[in-house]
Write a protein that binds this DNA or RNA. Structure first.
Lengths: 207, 207
DNA sequence: GTTGGGCCTGAACGGTCGTTCGAAACCGCT
DNA sequence: AGCGGTTTCGAACGACCGTTCAGGCCCAAC
């Protein structure tokens, strides 16, 4: 009666772990907490994972990979630089809002990894930052010199987007679409002085 | 030979603790680490402080109080709303850049406090956020409807500013003045579509 | 019905944690 | 020299940590 495969159980474990990590923080969470939250015995956790740190690593790696994959998908075929930026923001915030716990763990526990695991995640981070910087370069090329340093702009945008785990409630009055619209407007208006019409905020019609 | 008073020694302890907390994180730091970093014995720490959590509390409270005091000072007499906002940003980033360790601890370890101590710090946070929201309201009054939700705008600005502990090096090529200018431009340009001239960025001539 | 591997567990290990406590060291004062 | 308060310390306490290990359960394969 192998209703759930090992991979599926690992996914459930990662999901439960992300929830607890997001609530209590990585270091504050004990393996006993995770055992309780996932319904497995303490020792049982080690059948799926070799250490507490690997749990954190898998959460960060898997979710970051999905963010990057989503970005590539949404950017495919889009050529207008401003459109590309809005899609980038859209993808980031959509995923963030749909996986608040995981993304809080990714944003907030960045310094808790070490060794090769840390390097892997940091390499993904570099890739992702470079993608945004390239988009910004495209915008400058199309709309003239920016009003702010490109690096500052990129990290400011990440700051706006990643900070939301401190205040945003995905189930509250403010929908993700509106949030992305607002952040997109603030950024684009300030970076190159472009007023962003609602029309230039593409929404995927399905999915 | 009481060259340093108890208060001065406590300040030095808080400073050392902030440095280690910023480096390793609050929960990852042991009292033995702090003893080593401050040159006091493990037991000696408890002469100055009643618990590890009080250390974190004092770091957060003291520095937040200084940020708020600096804000009030810089806002005094300034009536133009845009000018007030730039002063707010200026003060925040100046203090942040000059006290990176403490501010990283304040931004990153917000959830590590509990009880009355947590409530005190959160009350300061509410006060501070309200100050920014009031400034934003003033800007809207003077320059017409904003391009983004006020609450989103406020937290976006905090996101831009507080995120810097993840990437900004106060000793690097980019000075704080330029950083504040850039962030101010991005935010103001996007929030109300105002291009911010360099002239509207006041610098305190001394201090 | 026995075997064997995938899945899971209770119990324990060595280590580190925050905190405490009694006493020592040091101080200005008489 | 001797007192009283402040400051500092070594050593220990109980709790909890991440991890391990020997073994038990379950079920498909023979």
């Amino acid at each position: 009666m192998a209703i759930a495969s090992k991979d599926q159980k690992l996914d459930a474990l990662l999901s439960a772990a992300a929830r607890v990590f997001a609530e209590r923080g990585y270091h504050q969470t004990s393996m006993r907490d995770l055992a309780r939250a996932s319904g497995v015995s303490l020792a049982g956790l080690y059948y799926y994972v070799e250490s507490k740190e690997e749990l954190l690593y898998l959460i960060q790696k898997n979710n970051f990979a999905r963010v990057i994959a989503g970005m590539r998908e949404r950017l495919e075929g889009a050529t207008d630089p401003v459109d590309r930026l809005m899609r980038f923001i859209d993808n980031h915030l959509d995923y963030f809002a749909a996986h608040m716990a995981e993304m809080k763990v990714l944003s907030h526990e960045a310094g808790a990894l070490s060794g090769e695991w840390l390097q892997t995640v940091e390499e993904m981070k570099r890739t992702y930052v470079r993608s945004l910087m390239d988009i910004l370069a495209g915008i400058e090329e199309a709309h003239g010199p920016a009003h702010a340093n490109r690096r500052v702009a990129a990290y400011s945008l990440f700051g706006m987007m990643n900070w939301i785990y401190n205040w945003y409630d995905p189930l509250g009055d403010l929908g993700v679409e509106l949030l992305a619209q607002n952040i997109g407007r603030i950024f684009l208006g300030g970076y190159v002085g472009l007023p962003v019409a609602v029309a230039s905020l593409p929404r995927t019609s399905a999915g």
